[in-house]
Amino acid sequence: MSADDQQRAGDRPILAVEDLAVHYGAGRRRQSVLDGVSLSVARGETVGIIGETGSGKSTFARTVLGLVRAGRGRILIDGEDVARHKPRQWQALRRRGVVQYVFQDPLRSLDPDLTIEDSLVEPLLVRGMRRPEAVERARAYLGRVRLDEDLLPRLPGELSGGQRQRVAVARALVAEPGLIILDEPVSALDSANRVGVLEILKGLRDSGVALLFISHDLGSVAGIADRIAVLYQGRFVEVGAARDVVNTPRHPYTRLLVGSAPTLRSAAAARARREELRALLRT
């Protein structure tokens, strides 16, 4: 189904990426990172992208956010093709706040010199909301990420890593976007905070916002994604319902990925299986 077909009515996806190619460098140094990838995210849907170092997953996120230039293909955000947007157009798009983001290091998505309150209300003030109203909303969203409003006058540097990442999620939410892109949002957190943030993300599923959750860790995505897309060497090698991808992986790489996750179960058989899959991927 092409994006044109879907454009009718409100079942248009919040994000549709079609045949996207991205490369770095030029001439002999040209290196293809994404090699014609397509993926769509429906309104309110949670899609996980799984990939390891060098798979192109962060490039995918950064291209959709306009931080990396698309070489080829279309990126439809709520129906608008942004792949060839000029900086000014990106600026206007960001101001509308349709797409928000959360990075691995919350200090990257929070201004270190702004108090938590200012960070949270800024996107609302930019869109013309009056401050008292904006602060009211900021408080509400801080509650949604299970943080106390005592934190509002603090600076990001005064918060723990887990708290900061929750603030980053709240900041992404206040603008009430259609889509939040999360790039390794829990990878830098210890296990208790990881579980906490994953619970919060899971809780967002009913709020109507779509999530694109990018991670190297199948375990953290499997619990909250409706669908999982597996990125390997710049291509999606498998896309399917989360439960199916985890339980009946079909592509050799996905099978290797599932089979490589350290398990508390017996390991000897798994070793032989992995060896076969590696041989398969090499050819």
């Binding site: 296990s191 990881r194 579980v195 994953l198 199948l218 375990g219 953290s220 499997a222 619990g223 989360a242 439960r243 985890v246 339980n247 009946t248 992986p249 079909r250 099978r255 599932v258 996750a261 350290p262 398990t263 508390l264 179960r265 299986r273």
Partner: peptide
Amino acid sequence: LIDEHEQYGLERFLDADADADADADA
């Protein structure tokens, strides 16, 4: 330690018998 692993490890999402059958299926 075991609980923690089970909380965010992959096993939680594996169907009970998928472990053994996954390859046969695939």
